[in-house]
Amino acid sequence: MKTLAKKDINKILSIWSQKHDVLAPTKMDNGDCIFSAFDEKAFTLDYKKPPLSPKSVFFPQSEIIFRVEKNRYNEVVAAKKALIFGLRSCDMMGIRQASSFMSRDNKDIYYQARQNAAATVVMACPKAQNETCFCTTTLSGPVAKKGFDLQLYDIGDTLLVEIGSPRGEELLTGMPLAEMEESQAKQKIDEFLQNAILTIPEVKSVIDAMNKLKDRKIAEKVWDDFGAKCITCGGCAFVCPTCTCFNVYDHQQAAGEGIRLRAWDACLYSGFTREASGHNPRASQASRLKRRHEHKLLDYNNTDIQDGLCGCVGCGRCSDYCPVHIGTLEVVKAITG
């Protein structure tokens, strides 16, 4: 198996930066650690999941999709060659789910162009990043099974390199690679996996909750209580790696000139389902929360991603970033009592 020396990683990222917009874990001056444009001085391998998942690379919160000029419209398919370094396996599963959705019926050319232009380098997860990680339950971690171009295992001074695609192979061209004997590498990976799994115990109640949802055995009070405290920020949808809803907006720039842009939308907002008549089939916040969680844990169970569990990738962001604790884990807890 190929390996890289950990001390070379900065150099390698610099080389990749020459031809890609590299997004990598970055320690900001203020102490925040987020994914930002690779900067040698601020790059770090000591990082946690940032609020935004990598979907924001393929599917920016707001993007111009076409311009109208003098009665013509021109599609804006903006895709720069990009490389996402250091994403975790949960986010890799998120990309696979979002990509599957975005190519299933109508192919989303904007998304696909950006996705095709972006290489993914997964860092296998050595341990739970915090107490809301449950990828071992959703079958999306701690290591990615597929979808990546490269996956790296940090085993100390050495990074084991798993190649997932021809593009991954190509990324390694000219890099200071070494070799580790296959059986030794396999043993190292098994150890890595065992250690990681120990810190991310399976949350059985997630499965129980899915079954209860299937049997429609949830008391409405569960949703009413959550609905009462939800402040409708939309954050859970925005941070979710598998949420892909958007709305489109037209802005006239001048006479005969305009843009159409699309921007993230969220099913938690009442206007998302409100009809022109004023009628809203999901009239209460409780009903909107119910739908969201049914979508993640029930409706999305039989996806094209056969090796995943459901529409949730177990990253825990909705629990991390909900101001009033209505994340998947809290909902599961309420459902299963």
């Binding site: 203020n30 925040d32 650690c33 935004l52 920016p60 919160q61 954050g235 970033y321 101001p323």
Partner: peptide
């Protein structure tokens, strides 16, 4: 093109 809340700022801790 978008907004990402600061994860560590004590005021909002990744929320908005």
């Amino acid at each position: 093109v978008g907004i990402e809340p600061s994860p560590e700022n004590p005021v909002n801790k990744g929320m908005l």
